[in-house]
Simulated scan of single mutants.
Amino acid sequence: MSSPNPARARISIIGAGPGGLTCARILQRHGMAVTVYDRDAGPDARDQGGTLDLHADNGQIALREAGLLDQFFELARPEGQEMRRLDLTGAITSHEVPDPDETFKPEIDRGRLRDLLLNSLRPGTVRWGHALDRVDGPAEGPRRLCFADGTTVETDLVIGADGANSRVRPAVSSAVPRYSGVAFLEAWFSDVENRHPGIAGLIGQGGAHAADGERGMFAQRNGGDRIRVYIIQRVPAPWTSASGLAPGDTEGIRALLLERYAHWSPRMRQMITDNDGPYVDRPIFALPVPHAWEHNPTVTLLGDAAHLMPPLGVGANLAMLDANDLALALANAATVDDAIRTYEKTMLPRSIETARALEGAAEHLLAAEAPDHGDDAPRH
């Protein structure tokens, strides 16, 4: 089968995260038809996670091409670029405060970014409740999407934007994510100015990080007067069961954490004792480095599906830049095959270079003198 012209191709994106939705938006702006399939039952099926910063040299490039940059700035929090480094007493040891007009990497809650992208798409673009099981069909196409409910869809191009545990990735690569040895435990705090003023004062308007060489904490201010704290440890996965605890045993987990952080000040241990609701375990995985694959004329990947890395401020930004590059390649190529070649010629070297720079860097979050890691930190 000869590769179709992208304008006449059936284009399917798997995953309605920032990368998948950005790709769909830019394709539609160029008059191209696209369908996004997502496993969630609907846009409000689950919490979208914390805040992230979109950089002027990648994420914002994609939003500009999507025609959404001005709307992004209306929703973003430039004050969220503040970054604090704390010692174990809670004293500030370094402090980055953005200028009033600084727009290089303003913060936005993941949920608000997703809503911005979703609302920009034509009605019916996203098909909810479609959990992909596998991609079938010959490499030259057409491909068949096989969903968990037994339904199938025929398509000319499959774009895997379905994250760390991608079901599209096996169509082009046998690589699987590996556990880094470092895990985050997420804790939530709501109505912080009234209910958690001590924590609000520690964190400021952006993010704050502290570590002692073996364990750490990263906290980030979210919109809606909320804060998320990520308790960072070098532990086996799953560490709760290895410690004899059930994942939902909030009091048991808290008691163990208080033992491990006993030498941290009570001011810092508020972030262990005062959270609203249960903890959420988020072990950190990454794909092998380098990760690449043989060219396939009907399947490609973007974002974490292509280059899952430690959460050090690049994930969403790279996913959106991938989406931008792929959509523009499709808009300007004679065939889908040509577009994939053009896209991967840029994306793969870029992602490999970044992944090499960040390989093993989850350990930096535990270092007493850690490098700046941005504030895209813990992601779902």
Rank of each mutant, 00 (worst) to 15 (best):
A246M: 08
G303E: 09
Q60V: 04
R64Q: 15
E186K: 05
D276V: 01
A334R: 13
E154P: 05
A237R: 08
E369P: 03
P43V: 08
V182D: 12
R64T: 06
D375F: 12
R122L: 14
A171F: 10
L302N: 04
E359S: 09
D40H: 09
A148V: 15
A316W: 08
T93A: 00
G303S: 10
E74Q: 12
L69Q: 10
H380D: 13
H291P: 04
A355T: 03
A33W: 01
W128A: 12
G150N: 09
T273C: 05
W239P: 12
R25W: 00
G59Y: 04
A219M: 14
T335N: 06
V182W: 07
I340A: 08
A175E: 11
P106S: 04
G224W: 02
E214Q: 11
R39K: 14
T273K: 07
P371D: 08
E186T: 10
M320H: 07
A161D: 12
I108D: 03
M32C: 05
E359F: 02
Y179A: 02
Q71M: 06
T35L: 10
G244L: 06
T51R: 03
V289W: 01
E107F: 00
Q71D: 15
S265P: 10
A33F: 03
Q48R: 15
M268I: 14
A377E: 02
Q28N: 05
G20A: 11
G277C: 03
L157N: 04
H196L: 14
H95I: 03
I159D: 03
D249E: 07
D99V: 00
G49R: 08
I232P: 02
